[in-house]
Design a protein around this nucleic acid. Structure first.
Lengths: 111, 111
DNA sequence: AATTTATACATAAGAGTTTTATGTATAAGA
DNA sequence: TCTTATACATAAAACTCTTATGTATAAATT
């Protein structure tokens, strides 16, 4: 688990973006997808993921559908209408954040 | 102060990158420079900055030179040799992080 | 002349997020 | 049979940052 501290604070945005794209996902699926996208670099821990999902649900940004697959429980999460709107904002913030960090790493002459 | 939570965990990297570039800077100068680069979006609070500088110094990554300018105290920080080496690593991590986040926001077909 | 803003440092309490550790349970693979 | 993978969950501790507060000088505004 190489997780540098840089990922701190980005978990909610990651979850919401993946749900926006995929429609619905369950917790374990999210961890595997993130691991795949980051080529194993980012491993979301369960201790971070499940409380985050519960909080987003409590805030009315996600809703859950419980299903039993292969005799195992799955909790599928999807964005609510409110969650969809909020995701737009979060992604805009993320784009700004990335731009700002790139400007710091690779400064334009003039600052 | 709009500081989205995305910036959490990036303060040390920002400080080290700026010092690598500028040679030496004092705390207040760092806050102003970051505000300028991010067009006012990221305002580093003193409660975050000063403890961070002290910690980096305690870790041997920064060293300090105190000077009095216009009858006001300034503490100039610069990277130590150890700090220079560590900065290379932190910047590599930052580049990876940015790439990974971009892959999440703008996914390549195939995941 | 008095008040506010800017410069320049600092720390403590509280909030928020994540890691680490632990727990339960089923299915698949070695 | 034992380990790994799947799938959820929570509590304690660690870490980082915000908010609030404090000191002090200089410059700008009212």
């Amino acid at each position: 688990m190489k997780n540098s501290s840089l990922y701190k604070g980005s978990l909610n945005t990651i979850i919401m973006k993946l749900l926006e794209e995929k429609g619905r996902m369950y917790g374990y699926e999210i961890t595997q997808k993130v691991k795949a996208i980051t080529l194993g670099e980012l491993n979301i821990t369960e201790g971070a993921l499940y409380p985050a999902l519960h909080k987003l649900e409590a805030e009315g940004l996600l809703e859950v559908e419980v299903e039993k697959v292969d005799n195992r429980l799955r909790k599928y999460y999807k964005l609510t209408e409110k969650g969809n709107k909020e995701t737009v904002n979060r992604l805009a913030e993320l784009e700004e954040f990335i731009k700002n960090m790139q400007n710091i790493v690779n400064p334009k002459l003039s600052y």
